[in-house]
Design a protein around this nucleic acid. Structure first.
Lengths: 95, 95
DNA sequence: AATGCTTACGGGTCACGTAATGATT
DNA sequence: AATCATTACGTGACCCGTAAGCATT
């Protein structure tokens, strides 16, 4: 699974609605729909129950939401810590 | 940063050598070199010191390696736990 | 008919492989 | 010259947007 896909999934889960989630992600709703399908193929089972009211999480989806959020936070942290490490290592600048 | 890139980075760090890492990843060495450059652009500083002996981690690289490994493990775990949840939820099958 | 998701289709971008180049021992 | 990494260049795959379709209220 790709972290980009995971970000999409979390956004849909938070909005409970593909259309609004797509807007938040600055993408169109069909593109988002396809990406979610891809994750469901990866995981091997549905993550959302779709209706004309929106999308609600399946049990597997609820699990992935909890785990996925912390993974995405960890990814952001890893990047910012690496950046901080680079700064700390940088030679002192003249005043 | 994308998880695919992070996987590439960790492999190069583990091998200490772009050529061997590329082989492990079933890709060519130039493609891998470009991907690492991309991450370094993302982070904003070099992650490896290159030489004709291979590649060794900078301080920032060492930090990203520790953090990155746990992120990738977390990603795999998230996926497998979602899969396990789907199985647990599945209706009982007839013997 | 209105709302929400999916399928179909065409295009642009990006990641990749092959080939050539650079640098160091 | 041998080894390891980078740059140049063309191509294929993949992701995306537009347009059309399907289902439910």
């Amino acid at each position: 699974m790709e972290s980009r896909e995971l970000r999409y999934f979390v956004t849909v889960a938070e909005e409970g609605n593909f259309t609004r989630a797509a807007a938040r992600l600055f993408m169109t709703q069909p593109a988002l729909s396809r990406a979610i399908r891809q994750i469901e193929r990866d995981v091997g089972s549905p993550l959302f129950l779709r209706s004309n009211k929106g999308a609600t999480l399946t049990f597997a989806g609820q699990v992935l939401l909890r785990e996925g959020r912390s993974v995405l936070e960890g990814l952001d942290l890893a990047e910012s810590r690496a950046r901080a490490a680079a700064d700390a290592w940088a030679p002192p600048r003249p005043a």
